[in-house]
Each structure stands twice: as structure tokens, then as C-alpha cells.
Nucleic acid binder design. Structure first.
Length: 536
RNA sequence: GCCCUCGUAGUUCAACGGAUAGAACAUGGGUUUUCUAAACCUAAAAUAAAGGUUCGAUUCCUUUCGAGGGCACCA
């Protein structure tokens, strides 16, 4: 019998509304449920039941319990779920390199995708590249004016950093005249002016080359890439239809508007309804125009059961509008769209400002931490994997809604509650398993010590945490679990020798426990996109 | 002005409405002839304030204070 089956059997015997909880505190039972007076549980694996503080505590016969948990982990069965989930994340602009905020976004998306995959969903990961618009023209204009034909190669710069350099230069030199030139450039771009298109292509290709390097280094992956320049016109037909249906209307100046209802959005200061522009008077798209189109395209391409947008909290209002308009247009799938909003990353001196170059650059961050690892532990091997593990773990640990106050020295620790700590616990486990052989029939009644029991209980909550983490779209919950698991193992490792235990039966029972731990820890690290190392 | 989010040890973060609010870092004290000490053990330290709902509130509701974000042709 597996642990999940035990839980189901017990649940059958309880009230309908009862929820079972695995107890991690040894004083209580193995499972507990609140508020039950009647404890007639008729299952032969139950040792005793006891009511403490109005909790019904259920004690299960230890060998059966341990075997059920460990066996379930060893006999990995893959669940399948027919639901399809799409996740959009990263979505960079092509006018500057990636910074630590992008990393937070990307790792949130990647990890959530992995969590849903582990639960059996069919998942597609989408990157929507913001490759057009005024902000893109800014770096183009600066390069055109002052670039003197230099290239990333001629300056020895990573190509996306090269582009970012011109974006910062534009911002520093910006004047009303320059701003007008940017508008003019965008107009030419939309009219497919050859020269401008050629410049745009050249510069975007540089950026992509740089992004690719960063993706590869940090492990960011996608199943599908949409380019804004190719799809930004899609929304216009929807706008036309919406006007005919009376959902949108033309403003005095010829722009197209949508009225936001008072109930959900409140009123303006003067008591009028809030409005939002869906198309400019000159018929060019605003973000909303293209997002209406892209949302449709996504549904056509994927027929999703859930569409998740990983985008910062500064766009909460925007997404509320977008989803409301989609619903008003009659798309049934509108309610399956979800904005995963996450907090900003702040520097000690305040908000990051790309325009001023005040950012924690993604590439530099990885390089810095990697150097730190090499220096601190005097090693070359695996230093990148360890540095990335520290960064990813740190960014994922904090629940999405929280802002992160980033401090280079303090934030990316290498010891304590960190990625490397978790990697290290797996290294230790694998090192034991390498030296031993597992026999077929372990005797789990040999596992009696406190640290053994805590580790087993910790292992037993894996699926539960995974499920909760998915339901709340919170990878932080799972990241914390991975740490707690590593901690339980390190404590076990310290107090319970495996290969040098007193008798062969204890050795085997503990080996099975180590094996089960290594399986879950490997899964856990893979979900967090952290490398499983054999040596550290 | 209005709307949204957040306020937990010195610091950075946890806690499905449930049992004694957990960690990490920093600080103090310890552990290596034993499977990797990037580890383990140990001490001290917190729910912004005031009300309410509840058998029970860090969690839900109201108010105040504080921080951040947003509110029609920006992304």
C-alpha cells in the first residue's frame, strides 16, 4: 500500500469535510485532523488514535507507514492530466540587456512550468519579444546618430550590452527635438522604410545573439516565441468588430475607447466613468490593441485551459482591464487568463532604472557570483552551477508578491538557507549510494530514531506541497520545502551513520531512506532548474 | 483624491483560519581519528497600532500609521 492510499482510506472513514494533515512534530501522531469527537477508525494499519487539543491524532504502525512512503517514492508513477497550461514569461524589450528583474520573472515562469509538468499538465512556455515601438527606436536613433558604424565586435562588447549602451546614451541626451525624431522613426518603421528596417533588423539581431548567450548560460528556455513586430496588427480586426457590436466607441479625437464599469474600476475625480484607449487616433496600436490580438492567437494555437502571464505588479491595473475587455468581447476563455503579478527588485538606493544604467545586470550578476564561488571554495569545476543555484534559489524563495530588496553582498548567500546547501545535501546522499548496494527486502522497522522519522515525514509531504504551490502559483512554497527537506537530511546525516550503522538491516533500511531522499531532492532541484551535482 | 499590494527577531524571509509563530544571516558558546564541516548542536531575539468576526486570527473585516505600485491615446 502507498501512503496516498493510506490517506484516502482514512479520509473515507472521516467526516466529509475533514482534512488530513501530516504532522511533522513527533509529539503528535503521524496524521491529524481537527475537531473530530468520534474516532472509530477501522483500519488495520492504525496503531492508536488520541485526541489532543481537539485534534484527532492518528498513529500508524511505523513499519507500514515508512514502507508506504518510501515505496511510493521508489515506484515512481507518472500521473497524466489532460489540461493544457500556457505560461508567458520574460518577454524582454530589445533595447537593453536583461537585469535581475528579468531573472526573477524568468525563473518564476520556468519553475511554475516545471511544477505544472510534474503534476502531469501539458505545459507550453512562451516568450513574447517586445521588438518594436518607441523605446526600441530610442536605441536605434542614438546608434544612428553617434554610433559611427561601430559594432559589438569592434568594441568587444556582448551585443545586447552594446545596444543597451545606446539606449542609455539616448536617455542622457534626450530633448524634445530628439523625441520628435524618435516618433518620426517609428512612423517610418510602420511604413516599412527600407533604411530603418535594415537598421532595426541589424540591431535586433545583435540583441538576440546576446539574449541567446544569457538564456543558455542561465538555463532559460521556451517552447514558443512570438515577436511583437509580427503580431501587433492582429488586434485591429478585433477592435473593428468590437466597434460594430458597440463594445468600443470612437472618442472626440477619433481614437477608440472602452468604458470601464464603475463597479470594478471606480470613477474619475470628476465622477465620469474611467476609459481606456484601445486604438490611437492615427490607427497605430497601443499595447492593449496587440494584447487583445495575441490573447486570441494564443487560444487558437494552444486551446489552453489556463493562460498565465508572468508580469510585474506595476501592470496589475492593465491586466485587470485586458481581461475585462476580453470577457466583454464574449471570449469564454477570458476567465482562464491569469496575471501572475510579482514584486519589484529594489536596489539599496531605490528602484532600478534602465535608462540611467542603474541596474543589476543579469550577466554581470552571474559572473560576480561565479567568481565569488571560485574564490571562496578555491575551485573551477561547477562554479557556474553553484552560482546559478544560489541566485535562482534566492529569487524563488521569496513569494512572488513580495518586493525584493536586493543587496549584492547579502542577498546571494552561499551558506545557510541557499541553493548550494540543497545541492550539497544531494551530493552527500549520492556519495553514500555510490559506495553501497541495495538489497531487495529492507526492514523498515529498523528506522526508529527521531531524525529518521522527521526525514521520512518530510518526504511524505512532497506531493502535497507541490499541489499547494501550483494552486497558489507560488514557487516559493516549494522552494522552502526543498530547503526543509535538505535540512532534514543533513540532520539525519549527522546523527545516523548509514554505512557504518551497527547491523546490516539498519544499513539497508537507511540506504533505502537515502535513496528515496535522493529521488525527491533530484526532482526538487530539477523543478527549481538547479543542477544536481555529484561533487562539491 | 481614488484603487491595488505589502508591514513578522538587529537584517532578509516562512507559516492550507488551527497545536508551543519557523528559518537563514549577523551575535555568543560548542562539534571533525566515523559515509564530503558548503555541515551539525546550542543560546538570545519578532506578528506596526486599535477595534471586530470566531471555540481559535500573523492569516478574514473596519479604522489609523508606514512602504511600494497604479489611475484614458505609455509600456
Amino acid at each position: 500500500m502507498y501512503f496516498s492510499e493510506i490517506k484516502q482510506l482514512i479520509l473515507k472513514n472521516l467526516d466529509k469535510n475533514a482534512t488530513l494533515k501530516v504532522c511533522l512534530d513527533e509529539k503528535f501522531g503521524d496524521l491529524a485532523v481537527y475537531g473530530l469527537k468520534n474516532n472509530d477508525l477501522d483500519c488495520d494499519f492504525i496503531e492508536k488514535t488520541q485526541i489532543i487539543n481537539n485534534f484527532l491524532n492518528i498513529f500508524i504502525k511505523k513499519p507500514i507507514l515508512f514502507e508506504s512512503i518510501i515505496r511510493e517514492i521508489l515506484d515512481k508513477r507518472v500521473k497524466k492530466n489532460k489540461e493544457r497550461i500556457i505560461l508567458e514569461y520574460l518577454s524582454p524589450n530589445t533595447n537593453k540587456p536583461l537585469h535581475v528583474g528579468h531573472l526573477r520573472n524568468g525563473f518564476l515562469g520556468m519553475t511554475l512550468a516545471n511544477i505544472f509538468k510534474e503534476l502531469g499538465y501539458s505545459v507550453s512556455r512562451i516568450n513574447l519579444i517586445n521588438d518594436r515601438g518607441e523605446h526600441i527606436c530610442k536605441s536605434m536613433l542614438a546608434y544612428q546618430k553617434w554610433g559611427k558604424g561601430q559594432t559589438p565586435e569592434s568594441l568587444g562588447m556582448k551585443p545586447d550590452h552594446f545596444i543597451g549602451y545606446w539606449y542609455v546614451m539616448y536617455s542622457q541626451k534626450e530633448t524634445p527635438e530628439l523625441r520628435e525624431e524618435v516618433h518620426e522613426m517609428l512612423r517610418k518603421w510602420e511604413q516599412k522604410d527600407r533604411k530603418i528596417l535594415a537598421l532595426w533588423k541589424k540591431m535586433n539581431n545583435w540583441v538576440y545573439k546576446g539574449f541567446e548567450q544569457t538564456y543558455k548560460k542561465t538555463g532559460l528556455e521556451f517552447d514558443k516565441t512570438y515577436y511583437e513586430s509580427k503580431v501587433y496588427q492582429l488586434g485591429k480586426k478585433i477592435i473593428e468588430k468590437g466597434i460594430k457590436k458597440g463594445i468600443f466607441y470612437k472618442g472626440k479625437q477619433g481614437d477608440v475607447l472602452f468604458d470601464l464599469p464603475e463597479k470594478e474600476f471606480g470613477l474619475n475625480k470628476d465622477g465620469s466613468l474611467k476609459k481606456i484607449t484601445v486604438l490611437r487616433k492615427d490607427k497605430t496600436s497601443v499595447y492593449l490593441t496587440q494584447d487583445l490580438g495575441i490573447a486570441n492567437l494564443k487560444y487558437k494555437d494552444f486551446k489552453f485551459n489556463k493562460s498565465i502571464y508572468v508580469v510585474g505588479l506595476e501592470q496589475d491595473y492593465y491586466f485587470k482591464c485586458l481581461f475585462y475587455i476580453l470577457k466583454s468581447l464574449g471570449y469564454k476563455w477570458a476567465e482562464k487568463c491569469f496575471h501572475l503579478s510579482y514584486g519589484m527588485v529594489y536596489l539599496p538606493e531605490g528602484k532600478m532604472k534602465s535608462r540611467e544604467g542603474k541596474v543589476i545586470d543579469a550577466d554581470n550578476l552571474v559572473d560576480d557570483i561565479q567568481k565569488l564561488v571560485e574564490k571562496k571554495y578555491d575551485l573551477k569545476d561547477n562554479s557556474l552551477e553553484i552560482a546559478l543555484s544560489a541566485i535562482k534559489f534566492n529569487l524563488l524563495l521569496i513569494q512572488p508578491k513580495q518586493d525584493i530588496h536586493f543587496n549584492l553582498e547579502k542577498s546571494i548567500a552561499l551558506e545557510g538557507k541557499t541553493g548550494p546547501y540543497c545541492q550539497y545535501s544531494l551530493v552527500r546522499a549520492l556519495s553514500i549510494l555510490e559506495k553501497a548496494k541495495l538489497f531487495k527486502n529492507p526492514n523498515f522497522s529498523k528506522l526508529l530514531l527521531e531524525k529518521e522519522i522527521i526525514l521520512i515525514r518530510q518526504l511524505s509531504t512532497y506531493s502535497e506541497v507541490l499541489q499547494r504551490s501550483a494552486e497558489s502559483f507560488n514557487p516559493g512554497l516549494f522552494t522552502n520545502y526543498v530547503y526543509e527537506l535538505a535540512k532534514s537530511f543533513n540532520q539525519f546525516y549527522d546523527s545516523c551513520p548509514v554505512l557504518k550503522a551497527k547491523d546490516e538491516e539498519t544499513i539497508q533500511a537507511r540506504l533505502y531512506l537515502v535513496k528515496a531522499f535522493s529521488i525527491i531532492m533530484e526532482k526538487g532541484l530539477n523543478i527549481l532548474n538547479i543542477s544536481c551535482l555529484k561533487k562539491m
